[in-house]
């Protein structure tokens, strides 16, 4: 329910932050005469009072129109999103897949072998994973696998094999985090009385782990998925730049550098909507799994 005021706050902050900033989208076009600049500004409504611009923007937004790009007059923000968002979405999906499959698998394995060598190995690897952020891991892997071994393309997004390195680089940090959370969560529920009861009534270790330790133990991991979604999003900025992937992140950075107001505002709104949507999904999942939360 708070989603709408939060979103409105994001829109308002972004809008005024950009409009109050020094330098506009046409400021550094040297060959633009003052008259031409004024004409451009009038064309886009930039000469009107700020509050008027704001409400006009909100009105257009309500109709799903994010406006034209200031830098590339032939393109609209909607077009940019339609062109580049699917790429980023796919990248994010691969990253999430890596994070969940690798992280949950490793975390459960470590919890099953708590305080044994397997556990220590996995946890050390997870710690290393957390300390290798995308902008360190990405270039390293490109250097080894693309430049030295020649197994993959250095960058791009055309061949299916172009998905492997970026997906892994984007997901590995979160996989490490998920592994730690899962291991600790499940590892703690293994110490509980109900788990001992389950073993005492004759369930095998695997059954007891699967039926009784997993559900309560995985709650912290589920809660982490909200922040993880935001992290995947910003991580994709780096991954797209390292692997030269034509996603939305590149568009956002370029637009921010070029002070392309409408593109930046539009993308910030899109990102906020995505994050809010993901948080809502996580809340829903949590309520589904945790009876205590369902009551309140």
């Amino acid at each position: 329910m708070e989603a709408i005021p939060t979103l409105l706050a994001v829109i308002t902050i972004t809008f005024f932050l950009l409009r109050l900033a020094p330098g506009g989208p046409f400021a550094d076009e040297r060959d633009l005469s003052p008259q031409a600049q004024a004409a451009m500004e009038a064309h886009y409504g930039l000469d009107q009072p700020l509050v008027m611009q704001y409400f006009r923007y909100l009105g257009n937004l309500a109709r799903g129109d994010l406006g034209p790009s200031f830098r590339y007059p032939t393109r609209t923000v909607n077009e940019i999103i339609v062109d580049h968002f699917p790429v980023s979405l796919e990248l994010g999906a691969w990253g999430l897949l890596v994070a969940l499959s690798l992280g949950l698998g490793a975390g459960l394995l470590a919890a099953a072998y708590r305080q044994r060598p397997q556990d220590h190995t996995i946890m050390t690897l997870a710690m290393v994973g957390i300390c290798l952020p995308t902008f360190v891991l990405g270039p390293f892997l490109v250097y080894i696998f693309s430049l030295q071994l020649g197994w993959f393309n250095v960058g791009g997004w055309s061949h299916w094999s172009d998905r492997i390195l970026p997906g892994f680089v984007l997901g590995s940090f979160f996989a490490a985090y998920v592994a730690r959370l899962t291991r600790n969560g499940v590892g703690e529920s293994v110490l509980m009385d109900y788990y001992r009861t389950a073993l005492a009534k004759g369930l095998s270790k695997r059954q007891a782990l699967w039926k009784h330790a997993l559900k309560p133990g995985i709650l912290p991991t589920i809660a982490f998925l909200g922040p993880a979604a935001a992290g995947l999003l910003t991580g994709s900025f780096v991954v797209e730049s390292v692997f030269n992937i034509p996603g939305l992140g590149q568009q956002f950075i370029n637009a921010a550098f070029g002070r392309d107001f409408t593109v930046v505002t539009g993308l910030v709104i899109l990102y906020a909507v995505l994050i809010l949507f993901f948080n809502l999904t996580v809340d829903f999942l949590q309520a589904l799994l945790d009876p205590k939360l369902r009551e309140s």
């Binding site: 939060t6 935001a230 910003t234 956002f252 910030v268 906020a272 994050i275 809010l276 948080n279």
Partner: peptide
């Protein structure tokens, strides 16, 4: 719930 890194950029 806000995309802070985006704001930081």
């Amino acid at each position: 719930a806000l995309p802070f890194t985006v704001f930081l950029i």
